[in-house]
Simulated assay, not measured.
Amino acid sequence: MAAQYDNTDEFRGASFTSATFAAATFRDCDMRRIKIVDSLLVDVNMSGDVRNFLVNDVDVTPFVEAELDRRHPERTQLRAMRTADDFRAMWDTIERLWSGTVARAERLPEAARHERVDDEWSFVETLRHLVFATDAWASRTILDEPMPFHRLGLTHTGYPPTDAAALGIDLDARPSYAAVTEARAGRMALVRGIVDGLTDTELARRCTRAPAPGYPEEPRSVGDCLRVVMEEECEHRRYMVRDLAILEAR
């Protein structure tokens, strides 16, 4: 069995020479300032927050960002948000895009909606995570509710399971698609209510709660929190479009 290293800083500052990482998986890892020299990088698949990424001394980040914007023009709209009207228009776009994506998923068998592709979150798990993201960044921060978390929400990978349990979240739950979509519909309606009543003044209002216990205590405006919700919506839909294509091909 291949070795597994979880929650370790054992390799900080390490040097690897003539080592093989063939077929290795790095998930939720801090890989800043890594230098790879004279190595074989063939059939490599990488995703994450990519900046200043040099390949053979060429920064490929602008090429990657431009191609993602071409494939998903909502990313450009997201970055351009400034006013309350911009946020409302962005949520209109998100609702429209997810409506089409959900329709695609619902043409698949129920089992496929629970199926992981390359060990990434399934469609159902992704919806569960967006429930949590809305609870954290809209209900708790913007609406100032201390414990708004739905039992079927799904925290991000690095969030401690004991902390999730303290929020009333059941990470081991295996809910039906119908149960998850019911929770998801309520959260989308909640954001719709927020953006419908949004003003430019409200965008600047400071929120007093962190999104969940363990998050940094730092100033966050309503606009900042809504932007996180919408970024989560756009990025996770992008992943789902990718994985649905594979599930449909099967």
Score class of each variant (00 low, 15 high):
Val44Trp: 10
Ile246Tyr: 09
Ile169Phe: 02
Pro160Met: 07
Lys35His: 10
Ala112Val: 05
His236Trp: 08
Leu154Cys: 00
Glu182His: 12
Arg209Val: 14
Leu247Asn: 06
Ser139Tyr: 10
Ser99Phe: 07
Thr126Lys: 01
Ile142Gln: 04
Ala14Thr: 10
Phe26Ala: 03
Pro73Tyr: 08
Ala173Asp: 04
Val222Gln: 03
Pro146Lys: 04
Thr25Gln: 09
Ala66Cys: 04
Val228Asp: 03
Leu154Glu: 05
Ala3Glu: 12
Phe26Glu: 09
Glu182Pro: 03
Thr83Val: 06
Gly13His: 11
Asp200Tyr: 05
Cys29Asn: 07
Pro109Phe: 07
Ala164Val: 00
Gly168Tyr: 02
Ala89Val: 08
Val64Gly: 05
Leu167Met: 07
Asp85Thr: 13
Met1Cys: 10
Leu54Val: 13
Cys234Gln: 10
Arg75Met: 08
Thr8Lys: 00
Ala112Arg: 12
Glu202Leu: 02
Leu143Tyr: 06
Asp59Lys: 07
Ala204Pro: 00
Pro219Ala: 01
Ala111Cys: 06
Thr8Val: 13
Ala105Pro: 03
Arg238Asp: 15
Val60Met: 01
Cys29His: 08
Val191Ser: 00
Leu190Met: 11
Arg113Ser: 09
Val64Tyr: 12
Gly193Leu: 09
Leu127Tyr: 03
Val50Asp: 02
His114Asn: 08
Phe11Glu: 12
Phe26Val: 13
Arg33Met: 12
Thr76Phe: 11
Gly158Trp: 07
Asp86His: 00
Val124Thr: 13
Met31Ile: 11
Glu218Lys: 06
Ala165Phe: 02
Ile142Phe: 03
Thr76Asn: 05
Leu41Phe: 04
Asp38Gly: 12
Met147Asn: 14
Thr201Trp: 01
Glu120Arg: 07
Ala80Tyr: 04
Leu190Thr: 10
Ala245Arg: 09
Asp9Ala: 15
Asp9Arg: 13
His236Val: 08
Val191Thr: 09
Ile194Pro: 01
Thr141Ser: 08
Asp224Asn: 11
Glu120Leu: 06
Ala133Pro: 03
Gly214Phe: 02
Ala179Pro: 01
Cys225Gln: 08
Gly158Ala: 14
Gly186Gln: 02
Ile142Ser: 10
Ala66Gln: 14
Thr126Arg: 01
Leu41Met: 10
Arg187Thr: 15
Val124Met: 00
Phe63Lys: 11
Arg82Ala: 13
Arg113Glu: 05
His72Pro: 02
Ala138Phe: 09
Asp170Ser: 01
Val241Glu: 10
Pro62Lys: 12
Ala212Ser: 08
Asp85Leu: 07
Ala66His: 09
Glu231Thr: 15
Asp85Cys: 01
Leu40Pro: 00
Gly48Cys: 07
Met1Tyr: 14
Ser18His: 11
Val42Gly: 05
Asp49Gly: 12
Ser139Ile: 11
Val131Leu: 04
Leu154Phe: 05
Val131Arg: 01
Ser122Val: 13
Leu154Lys: 06
Glu232Gly: 03
Ser221Trp: 00
Asp86Cys: 07
Thr201Ile: 09
Arg237Phe: 02
Ala210Pro: 01
Ile169Asn: 01
Ser18Cys: 06
Ala136Pro: 00
Ala136His: 00
Leu154Gly: 03
Val44Lys: 04
Arg27Lys: 14
Pro73Lys: 03
Ala80Ile: 12
Thr101Ile: 11
Leu41Ser: 05
Asp224Gln: 11
Asp243Tyr: 13
Thr181Cys: 04
